[in-house]
Amino acid sequence: MRLSLSSRLSVVLALLPALMVMIVVYIGATGWTVWMSLTNSRMLPNNNFVGLRQYESLFGNDRWITSVHNVVIYGVLFVSLALAVGFLLAVAIDQRVRAEDTIRSIYLYPYSMSFVVTGLVWQWLLNPSLGIQHVLRSWGFAGATFDWIVRPERAIYCLVVAGVWQASGLVMAIMLAGLRGIDDEIWKAARIDGLPKWRVYASIVIPMMGASFATAAVLLSTAVVRLYDLSVAMTNGGPGIASEVPAKFVMDHLFERANIGLATAAATTMLVTVIAVVAPYLYWRARKGDIR
């Protein structure tokens, strides 16, 4: 395509913001953060190179270890539960049920709400003295205990409950699209072969839905790494430091504890984790030709 000078200028002009954002924000800022993690910057950034010292102290930091520990627990449970719940919901809806649109709306609406709202609602529901525990006791289950949100070793599981509530609908929507994309003739063929329905799902449908599972899993995983608002709103990292997460660790050390070196080291560690999760997925999609 032959472009005159003025057309070419217009294109460049239109792409300038994107180019600037790429270079200044994404590449520049990321690079600077990585560099900061190699200095001993505290309240103000400096350029005193200290090698990997920040990483040493990072992995000797109790709060960071707890954060990583928590995000692993949260990640494994949140991703697997949301995938399972979302898939089951999608399968249920796919059975040609009545009021499908309404049901789908109910499953999906939490996804439209912010993590702050999600966190505050569940904080209230899980409140030991007035929440669900209280309801169960008032119904006569005198010994019922559901006080995980105030028990340090259990608090992180409360975040999982809230997170799954918020995100399962998204998985359901992705899975439903995948299920609806399966050729009707496969179902006809399976019926002629006399396969029971669960068998068709287990042996034929799930293997065909690899792309849907991968997409959903990557989306959920990036949400795990970004986990911040939910922890802030629901438990504020507590009780104590029991439900701290890495993103919160970075924010707190940047803005409250004035330890830029440590915070950027933590951020860089997050980056490495994300690359480890996302790179194979992007590679796979690029090979499929989705992203050119």
């Binding site: 200044v24 994404y26 590449i27 990321t30 790494v225 994300v274």
Partner: peptide, 23 residues
């Protein structure tokens, strides 16, 4: 450019926040 934009979209905000505050 497009490919790069899709890749960086996955990076957590924590990587950019402090440099952007400074900028």
């Amino acid at each position: 450019l497009f490919g790069a934009m899709m890749v960086v979209a996955f990076i957590p905000y924590q990587l950019f926040i402090y440099p952007l505050v400074r900028v």
